[in-house]
Design a protein around this nucleic acid. Structure first.
Lengths: 148, 148
DNA sequence: CTCATATTTGTAATGATTTCAATTGTGTAA
DNA sequence: TTACACAATTGAAATCATTACAAATATGAG
């Protein structure tokens, strides 16, 4: 995959000092738009960085978040998922197969908020749950009922 | 607190067979709009129902969710929080003190979704993070910088 | 090279949630 | 009322993601 910027330069844009581990983790997030869990990132990078520790993955993602280089997605109850795309967008998770899609939302920041009173908003999170085409058809085949 | 409907009738509206524990948990959710955790619900009800088990609170909330009588809020990383108000609305959490506010959103279902393709949406979740008035002032006093 | 500092690592602890088998409660039919 | 089947509740143990921490390693300046 080709980036506009090398990953070490990209990290420095966010005031993150590059290291082998940090570059590998950011590389993975930039080239895999699958919103991976810590486990998935660790398993993917472990072969090429045999000494990698899961603690390092946690530490690094925490640092990335603090610097605004990645966002955390709490769309699943159990695992936190991470997104290297920090531009405003929403997510969709399929309750059948668990796949997660990015949803474009040009006007995400413009969602009208009533009764917001004296609150200062720093982050806006929008996500949807439902069924992808395949899982919807599977479910309808089993139950005989239309969904949604 | 006075409800339009007794809680046992309310449960039956959702096809939930009432029991002492179920009524107590639903009562608590209906009268405490604080989006409590399992821990908080358990601690609040334990004195009046000494035999109450935390497992029952988990089981009961799971049942309530399946029947659509409560919703689960994943606004915090660690704990799941529960909301007895199933009408469409968003939430705001203060990153300073952790308090959670309901945010009215008349048009929540109407949020324009582009590129949704073949996805069938069954749930829409919107939440904000930021600072309440008090915490914003505290933070600005400490750092000397404006936030938001 | 040497020292101070930052980063990484593995292990152990934490804490929310789930599993599961046993106990208790409930409703029905004789 | 009693017996019985089934549903609900319970507590203990297991699971699993995440965090704490202290030791080991890497880095960079002088």
């Amino acid at each position: 995959m080709i980036f506009k910027m090398t990953t070490d330069k990209y990290l420095m844009e966010y005031d993150i000092k590059p290291s082998v581990q940090r570059i590998a983790i950011m590389d993975y997030l930039r080239s895999h738009k699958t919103h991976p869990t810590v486990e998935e990132i660790f398993n993917a990078l472990s072969p090429s960085i045999p000494t990698l520790s899961k603690t390092t993955v946690y530490n690094t993602l925490k640092l990335f978040m603090e610097q605004g280089a990645v966002t955390c997605i709490n769309i699943e109850e159990k695992n936190a998922r991470f997104d290297g795309d920090v531009s405003p967008h929403a997510h969709f998770i399929c309750l059948g197969c668990g796949c997660i899609y990015d949803i474009e939302m040009e006007q995400l920041d413009a969602i009208t908020v009533e009764n917001i009173g004296e609150l200062t908003i720093t982050e806006t999170h929008v996500y949807y749950k439902g069924y992808c085409k395949k899982c919807k058809e599977d479910k309808e085949r089993k139950t005989g009922n239309a969904i949604g």
